[in-house]
Design a protein around this nucleic acid. Structure first.
Lengths: 133, 133
DNA sequence: AACAAACTTTACGTTTACGTAAACTTCATG
DNA sequence: CATGAAGTTTACGTAAACGTAAAGTTTGTT
């Protein structure tokens, strides 16, 4: 409930995070189950630090983008991945390039829908003005 | 399999569309089941016209954006909706505004991820050059 | 001490978006 | 005419992402 502080390290309970991001504790535990979070424990109780919190934020951003949890997990792996071998690195860059392409496609899609909605909106506005006039 | 023409109206079989958009016929029938498509019939067989095809394209664009089929359905309804009453129109415009906000949020999200991926990419490129050098 | 609030695990249920198989009809063609 | 390709319906199965109890522990407060 109250934020736990310990040597200038901000710590959070599962309830803290569920309130902050307006999700259920069930969801947070599920993300852990799927390997996307790994809070420490104090006894049985989960303790989340700043990094965990950022991860959770990233998970939710991914969801807004229509990423599956598995996809978001793969992105996490990309960040944490072993960058020691050239082979690793180039297969990694291929993945990055692919993701970038998907996202660019998504950008185009969104812009298209936005234009259509703008169109529809001004159309509605027009009819409305005529109606109330 | 061959495209059916009839007085300059382009018509398609379910197989045509499944090939064109690289999806299964099962999916197409499912979209119909959910009320997103309504092809005419020739006997038992579904016949899709240009409008159906466009709709299908929009469904798939929606999917790329992470829309549920229900959401896409609601968008379709927006387009087709009754624009006769001022009440209808304004509640409709509220919906449009909401969707626009969601999409703008999504735009921001995508741009953020793209920047991060660019970052990660150049990072990788850097290490790779040093490694192979 | 007792009580509520917040935490825990376990486990079955639910929705969405199809996959997959079975069993059938229709149609062009060798 | 049979046979293969493409269409149909019906129906059960499945993965993802949780929802929703149930049943128990821990902790701070009255």
């Amino acid at each position: 409930m109250t934020m736990i502080k310990k040597a200038s390290q901000a710590l959070y309970s599962i309830g803290d995070l569920s309130k902050e991001f307006d999700i259920t504790t069930r969801s947070i535990r599920f993300y852990e189950d799927q390997g996307l979070l790994a809070p420490t424990r104090k006894g049985q109780t989960r303790i989340y630090n700043q990094r965990d919190r950022v991860r959770l934020k990233l998970i939710l951003r991914g969801k807004r983008l229509g990423f599956s949890l598995a996809e978001t997990g793969r992105l996490f792996e990309l960040y944490d991945a072993d960058k020691s071998s050239a082979k690793q690195l180039s297969s990694m860059m291929a993945l990055i390039a692919q993701k970038k392409n998907e996202l660019k496609q998504q950008l185009d899609d969104i812009n298209a829908v936005l234009i259509e909605l703008d169109d529809l909106e001004s159309n509605c506005q027009n009819i409305l003005t005529k109606l109330t006039h």
